[in-house]
Amino acid sequence: MAAPDRDETLRATLVRGLSRRRTSLGVTVGPSAIWIVLLLVAPLAFMTAVSFASIDSVTFDIVWEPTVNNYYNLVAGGTSEYSLGPLVYKATAFEKAVLLSYAIATVATVLCLVFAFPLAYVLARLDDRMFKIVIYLVLLPFFTMYLVRAYSWRLMFGQSGVLNQVLGAVGVGPVGAFEFGILAIIVGLTHAYFPYMLITLYASLDGLDFSLIEAARDLGASRVDIVKDHIIPLTLPGIVGGCLFVFVPSVGAFITPQILGQGKVQMIGILIEQRAIGEATNAATASAASMAVVVSIVVAMFLVFRYVNLDELGGV
């Protein structure tokens, strides 16, 4: 009955506004939608546009004349020969970088999976006190700056790195494999993304009913059978998720190959960085390479998800 207008305060306006569905939707969706459009959609669209433009060789300015040359040059005019039987293919620097990145990322992912699974399994079976200690030891490297972890491997590798120094001290001469290069990068990436794999696997193993496994063992099933028939199918979503979290960032890695490659291993990240701000700065070729990589990742993910049931992924 009291005159509502007299009580009209900012707060009341706010309350009334928020009670209307349309307003509340606008308030909640609006800001992030603007952010996403301005800082994600627009830049990606712009990059796509630039990838079809060319660059003034003097000023580095963008020249808006449509061309597909930037893409054409990604795949044409290669020199590195690959032969598959009678087929000889000459790969360009870009193709080589893509192949190399995918190969390195695959190895790192497999290593992460093989290394992390037993630890995740142990973690899921520990009692609370031990669990806290071990998870602390796992999470600490996880939260430690990525750069610090990559740097730690720079100290380990190299002709006079810690590994070779220790080997030298016990009389085994410097081992070539412990110099900077592909192996160092694989180890660095495995170390960097290992905790992601571990935690994702742990999350799915933690939901596992271990009494089922006990029962299976009482019935005489061997460990291998149990792992094969029970643990792996039940944790498949975790495995796929973990692999994704290791694989995708490994493909686009920059710091690790830069620090551990001694200039000899050109992964995609380095190639794009060089084109974007390096000696031969060219926004158009950098954009084309970036877009091609984005497309390749989307295709790879699409293929992965074709073979893994999505509902299963979500069904932990």
Binding site: S32, G252, F254, E273, S287, S290
Partner: peptide, 24 residues
């Protein structure tokens, strides 16, 4: 779509997000 784009910034490789935003 909104949800997907809300997740993409963490999935797209850092080098590509960085280069894209720089040019933009």
């Amino acid at each position: 779509v909104y949800r997907t784009f809300g997740i993409i910034p963490m999935i797209v490789p850092g080098v590509i997000l960085g280069v894209g935003l720089r040019f933009y």
